[in-house]
């Protein structure tokens, strides 16, 4: 780590076919005062070019890896470039970059390694479908137990990650469904990292299609249950170190 970006944050934006929204998201992040790296996850619609034109650093994955794969690439790049804080933010415009300074300050002030922006605790009008609410509550309960902190939105992708957890995520980060959100949260808690959540405002999707149909919700339920079965095992430890206190 070269130290020149110590305590400075970089925003990591995983993007897959988000050409409609990525430029506006990058512009908003730069306006909020943060450097941004867009991880183009094998898009075929010119997302990388749009992000580059908007002055973002762009990591172009040669093929689609999924959100977890894109995020680990972004975290690796952040660590390689000396950043100690990375903020994960969606490219579809749902996450409000105006929240970034408050989230980063909150994480630093409270010595948090992982801060999750929750859609359920206040300022947002976000409501999930009934079929989705059941597994979401279940995931939240397991995540709360693992982290020792009240988690209401275990699958939120609006997060601040600080060193040394950032270094762990740069080396090992789950790439399967809900692995990048729920499992990463549970593992951070299991390893003794300080985890909390903060209410954030959420925008409507600025482009692309959401996956909120009944079939998609049922699939979400099935996959969430499998993730719970595998990712919440008490003996499973993702990182090599025993806990943050040993570091």
């Amino acid at each position: 780590m070269n130290g020149r970006n110590s305590q400075r944050a970089v925003v990591v934006v995983p993007a897959f076919n988000e050409v409609e929204t990525v430029a506006a998201v990058v512009a908003d992040i730069l306006r909020a005062g943060f450097p941004v790296v867009v991880v183009d996850d094998g898009s075929s619609d010119g997302t990388a070019a749009a992000a580059r034109a908007a002055d973002a650093a762009v990591l172009e994955l040669p093929f689609n890896l999924g959100v977890g794969g894109a995020l680990r690439a972004g975290f690796r790049w952040a660590v390689d470039n000396g950043y100690e804080i990375a903020v994960q933010c969606d490219a579809d415009g749902q996450h409000d970059p105006a929240e970034l300074p408050r989230m980063v300050e909150h994480a630093i002030a409270n010595d948090l390694h992982l801060l999750v922006g929750t859609r359920f605790a206040g300022t947002t009008g976000f409501r999930a479908t009934r079929i989705r609410r059941v597994p979401m509550r279940l995931l939240a309960r397991v995540a709360s137990k693992a982290t020792g902190s009240t988690i209401t939105d275990a699958s939120s992708g609006f997060r601040v990650v600080r060193a040394p957890l950032l270094g762990e995520f740069a080396m090992k980060y789950p790439m399967h469904y809900l692995g990048d959100t729920f499992e990463a949260l549970v593992q951070a808690g299991r390893h003794g990292y300080h985890v909390a959540e903060i209410p954030v405002s959420m925008n409507e999707r600025q482009g692309g299609a959401p996956s909120a149909g009944t079939v998609a919700s049922m699939r979400h339920l099935a996959r969430a249950l499998v993730t719970l079965l595998i990712g919440s095992g008490h003996k499973y430890r993702m990182f090599e170190g025993k806990s943050v206190d040993d570091k």
Partner: peptide, 13 residues
């Protein structure tokens, strides 16, 4: 393959 793809993207940038 995942690790290789990530390294490729970082080196390309």
């Amino acid at each position: 393959a995942r690790t290789l793809a990530e390294a490729h993207a970082i080196l390309k940038l």
